[in-house]
Design a protein around this nucleic acid. Structure first.
Lengths: 206, 206
DNA sequence: GTCTATATATTGATAGAC
DNA sequence: GTCTATCAATATATAGAC
């Protein structure tokens, strides 16, 4: 017979609680005491597993690397076979997160990227996460083959998709509205439509 | 004869110190004590002018509204007559700020947008700042007249430019490199080139 | 490994003299 | 309006029993 799920280890409970609180409240605004309460753990356990709050942040950022596919990419890849549409399905996932949170919370890594300024290792780890995201999108763009012009740099375009996602999420957050997000994605779509459009004959001045 | 510049008022010294520190360290990580030290003021003066640290943040965000043209737009408008090139000159201003700070500091409002989550008034004021920015860019796009297709929504496109700026600045910050910024602007340029390209004859399948 | 109790520093904010 | 002194709360982190 099925047994009840075992309670996760203390360390992973702390990690999970921190991940959620850093996402909701930000790293500087989250106290160790709050993390402990949410994780149902004690101060002694915390400092047994982590040297400091700062080290916990770095562990959370490593954790996010593992979550890229299960939390961000897998669903888009599973439901959307067309590689170009997959890219927009990934963006749709962020739209859904905004929708579910009243347009308050989008990408937790973008938040760390801007709110932290004195922990260079944190930026390095966010950069690694961004690289993983960009590579996943780049893979889609490469899978699109010759539907995109050969001279379009896939890496640059994938980086641009991340740029648009982060900027769009930010604006949705401050406006508490999906409109700026949808507008930005609409413009990105127009750009892709152009890139994928049939060969053009440009009328030349006589 | 010329007199030495008068020392700014205590209130404006506090406001200016806060603006810079919130930009460099973020709002939660900046203590009132630091602001006072930088402003050469005392706790008593601070709470004479501001009800709380939170109210100071709101005052700083109002202050930014006044700084939009002098700090962000004026130079681009003065040096670049072409309205489309003006938009890219504005982006060039952010590139310069990144360059001058080792790719660590871009837009202070984007930072507040993501690091603050429990002060709705702060988001409202960032939204007002973003609106001003978008409107300034929108004005350029409208000045471009029929160089852009009539059916392109100027507001949506201006919002997209802000999206790209914020996302590009964020990536430059985490990578400590201008490359992601330049890549994103290059893609935005390609999109504008497309929008401004001569009327196209699309080859139709037979 | 987990617990409670606590050390030490710093936080935002206030009081009251001048 | 500006000053110093200080409050009360909270922060991260540690000590040492179990």
């Amino acid at each position: 017979m099925a047994t009840a799920a075992a309670k996760p280890s203390t360390r992973s409970r702390i990690l999970e609680a921190a991940r959620e609180l850093f996402w909701l409240k930000g790293y500087p605004e989250t106290s160790v005491a709050e993390i402990l309460e949410k994780a149902e753990a004690n101060s002694g356990s915390f400092y047994y597993y982590f040297k400091s709050k700062e080290e916990l942040l770095l562990a959370v950022l490593d954790y996010y690397v593992d979550l890229l596919y299960p939390e961000v990419m897998d669903q888009a890849f599973a439901t959307t076979p067309d590689p170009i549409e997959r890219v927009f399905a990934v963006l749709g996932g962020y739209r859904y997160a905004l929708e579910m949170t009243g347009c308050t919370f989008g990408c937790p890594l973008g938040r760390v990227a801007l709110e932290i300024s004195d922990i260079p290792q944190a930026h390095e780890k966010v950069a690694i996460n961004f690289q993983g995201w960009v590579n996943a999108v780049k893979k889609c763009l490469m899978d699109a083959g010759n539907r995109l012009p050969a001279d379009v740099d896939r890496h640059q375009l994938a980086q641009f998709v991340l740029t648009v996602m982060e900027g769009a999420v930010m604006q949705a957050r401050v406006h508490r509205s999906l409109e700026p997000f949808d507008n930005s994605v609409a413009q990105l779509r127009a750009y892709f439509r152009y890139l994928m459009s049939a060969p053009r004959v440009v009328r030349v001045k006589e």
